[in-house]
Amino acid sequence: MITFKANNPCTAVSLFEQSCIEKGLSYKEGGTVYNVISPHIGGLPDAVNSLYAIKKAVFEDKIISFTDFMRILKNNWENEEALRKRILSNYTYFGNDCDEVDEIAVKILNDFSDMCKTYDEKTPIRFVSGVSTFGRQIEWAPSRIATPFGRKQGEILSGNLSPTPGTDHNGAAAIIKSYCKADLKKQYTGAALDIGFVPSSIDNDNAITAIAGLIKGFVLLGGHFMQIDTVDKATLTEAQKHPENYQNLSVRVSGWNARFVTMSKEWQDMIIERAK
């Protein structure tokens, strides 16, 4: 059960939030009308892709038994390169507007918000779900085990609710459609989606119209948190090698922008991995 914490009163927040002063209670003591604690999940697209790969490879196509599959993952795909590439390239994963995969995402998101709901409204603190990683996928990467959809131990996986890098092939409209299939209203505190464009793919007048259309379509489909970035892998790789030439290169990280050259190598690698 969630309880209030009086020993960490969040003084500055309490000063600026409505009704804390009137009630004489700090933010964490329930001073505000609405007080929110929100667990966020990360790595959802990886979980979806993993379950889908097991469903297809083990149960439908029967190319490997579940026991053997788990042993191979434990060994980080060692000596199983052919199988790894086959599973990685022959199935369609989250972010391609494929209902069969996207339904798994919908189910996990619904289950997660329903679970949170059982704790919600039992105290003045709202307990609601959301989705984000906001860069934490970098911290998580070293402890990641190999995944059933062909990623090896320690690889950076998906950021926020965006497709795992390298698994989306149908463009931004399909990513948005996959993302919007879930009832995102249930993710009260946001479910972030990152969309990246290669600059050369949008250097015409029509592309501006098209991106405006993507944003409109996103909203119409029920999306509520999207960040758009445009930078190509080659430029980023160059900037990593020669930071002196790219002092002003700004990239969208996740809810905020940062100067690329000021980021640590791990963070730069994540941004490079995400770019196509």
Partner: peptide, 12 residues
Amino acid sequence: IQRNSYVDGPGI
């Protein structure tokens, strides 16, 4: 079948 094309006529 290429979805999300910006170069084969107006719009998406």
